[in-house]
Design a protein around this nucleic acid. Structure first.
Lengths: 149, 149
DNA sequence: CTACTTCCTCAAGTTAACTTGAGGTCAAGA
DNA sequence: TCTTGACCTCAAGTTAACTTGAGGAAGTAG
C-alpha cells in the first residue's frame, strides 16, 4: 500500500465511517469531486474528508443533500478550502440552526398550554399556523385544532 | 349534507388540511381507527381531528409515524381521550423535544470552535461521536474529522 | 329515478438517500 | 505470473410517507 497524499475510496470510507457506496453516491450528487488515477479509480484529497464530515454533520441536523450542496458551493473550486472558507459556510449553518432551535423551543413551550392542558381550545394555539416555517409546507396545520371537541 | 356527530373523511380533510389519501394512509398505519357506516364509509369522531393534529405537529418536529403510533397507543382505546390522557402523552413528547433542543444547541455551540474556526483540530471536537444520539446511528461520525488536513 | 359528487379498495408510482448485485477491471504481493 | 482484494459502472432494490389512478359503489339533490 503506497503512502500517498491522495486517498482511495476505501481509506476515505475508513476515516469517515461512511459506506463506500454512500461516498460514490455523494459524488453523483455533486457533494465531492475526486480526481481519477490512470486506472480510473477515485483519488481523494485529505480535505475531502472534512467535506464529507461536514456533510454528515449537516445531515444529522436535518439538512437535505440539496441544501448541503448549496452550502458547499460556497467553497472554492480548485483549491483546498481555507479557514475563511469554512467560516463563511459556518455562518449560514449557524443561522439555520438558530431558527430550528427557536422553532422547537416555541413548540415545546406551547405544547403544555395546548395539548398538555387538555383543553385544546386552540383559537389561541401557537402550534396552529406557525408563521416561522417559511410557508413551504403547503396547507399544513393551519386548519388544525379549531374544534371544540 | 346531514349534520352529524360523526364526520366524513372529506370533512376531516377539510378541517385538518390533510389530504384524503393521507388520512386513509394513517388509518392503515394504525394512527386512527374510524368506524364505518352501513355503506362502508369511514365515520370519524371529533376527537380524531385532535388526534390527527397531534400527528401533524409531531411530524413537524421530526417524529416518524412509528414513534407517533407508539405515543398514541398511550391513549385509551374505546373512549374519547380526556385532559389527563393528553397530558400523559405531552410529557414524553416534551422530553423528546428537550433532548432535540439540547442536541441542536450543543451542535451550534461547537460549530464555531470546530468548523467556524477553520482549524478543525478535532481531537477535541464535540461534533465527533456525540453520545447523545442513542447510538442508533450505526457507525456514524465517530471517525470523522480526525485529520490534520 | 337520474345525475353527480364523494367515497371505497387495491395496485402502482414518487422522492430521498442510499444499498445491493452483476459482471468486469486494476493493483500489489508471493 | 498468478491470485486476491479493492475498485469500477450500471441497473435495480429499499424504506418512509404518501400520491395517483383505475374501476366501482354509496349517498344526495332535483
Amino acid at each position: 500500500m503506497r503512502k500517498s497524499a491522495l486517498l482511495s475510496i476505501g481509506e476515505v470510507a475508513g476515516r469517515t465511517g461512511l459506506a463506500v457506496s454512500a461516498i460514490r453516491y455523494y459524488e453523483e450528487e455533486g457533494l465531492i469531486a475526486p480526481e481519477r488515477n490512470a486506472g480510473g479509480r477515485r483519488r481523494f484529497l485529505r480535505s475531502d474528508i472534512r467535506r464529507l464530515s461536514f456533510v454528515m454533520i449537516a445531515q444529522r441536523v436535518g439538512f437535505t443533500i440539496g441544501e448541503i450542496r448549496a452550502q458547499l458551493q460556497k467553497l472554492p473550486d480548485g483549491r483546498t478550502p481555507t479557514k475563511k472558507d469554512w467560516t463563511k459556510i459556518s455562518r449560514g449553518f449557524s443561522r439555520d440552526l438558530d431558527a430550528r432551535i427557536d422553532t422547537l423551543n416555541r413548540l415545546r413551550d406551547n405544547l403544555d398550554s395546548c395539548i398538555g392542558c387538555g383543553c385544546l381550545s386552540l383559537q389561541r394555539c401557537h402550534l396552529v399556523n406557525p408563521k416561522d416555517e417559511a410557508a413551504r409546507d403547503g396547507p399544513g396545520p393551519q386548519f388544525v385544532l379549531r374544534d371544540k371537541n
